[in-house]
Amino acid sequence: MKRQKKTTLQFLAYISPWLIGFACFGIFPMLYSLYISFCNYMMVGEPKFIGFQNYIDLFRYERNFFKTFQNTFVFMGATTIFGLSLGLLFSMMINSVPRCKRFFQTLYYLPAVLPFIAGTMLWESMYAKYGILNSILNTFGMDSVNFMGYDNAMKSLIVMSVWGGVGGKITMFLPAVAGVPSELLESMDLDGANAWQKFAHVTLPMISPTIFYLLIMDIIGGLQAYGPMMMLGGGTATMTATLQIYNYAMVDRSMGYASAYAWIVFLIVLAVTFVFFRFGGRKVYYADSD
């Protein structure tokens, strides 16, 4: 018993630097923001407790509340689906040409090396009225497209985000695809399976842990996205929940209202992640778990 207590204390001592950091920079701000979400606080004077008023205002009066969540889920869904699909597709293609593997891997990873702000500015200039994309369209006699207009802004942001993220996914998928046991694929060949059957029944289950990891990361990242929208604009067409929180907190300094918003987003992200872990995890194949 004494030994167990000593071990516990030792364990706590070892992880105390992280625990203290997490408590100060993770738990405390979260709890404080929960408290602030029940207050009217404009960063001057003391927070005034107003009960559930911020939450009531959000659900009853917030004009963009549902629109921002719709945008958030559209962005998250599209970037996740296209990002994962393209990442997997390119990985399979690169894996099938071993001689050029390094070259293509580097080529596709380049956008991920580019700093986010530089990449976004590049796309901003491409999407501009006199940008290269419109110049190409005009060269072929087509009208300019308002890439960042109300109808196209979200699509433009999704394209940009998928472009920036696919390289990172390839680097994760490549080793997973390369690690699929060749004897399994060969035995499928002997059984007369076609390419799709080999992919669906061998490759996909074998790389499912990687897919699941990237899926969760993309979902969380997508639900928290605000950088591209903030830099490229787009107004209500691209306003995500996190960007709305940023605007309320940092532009309006309406910290109570922003905190209430943030807590709702947190609960939704938590619920979505939980659902994926609970149900998605069952489909993942872990070789050492059997």
Partner: peptide, 21 residues
């Protein structure tokens, strides 16, 4: 309501209005 807040509000909705949505 600061000028920055007004600009943020205006910027958020202008596209939607100008494009007829």
């Amino acid at each position: 309501c600061s000028q920055a807040s007004l600009e943020s509000i205006e910027f958020t909705y202008t596209g939607e209005y100008l494009e007829g949505a």
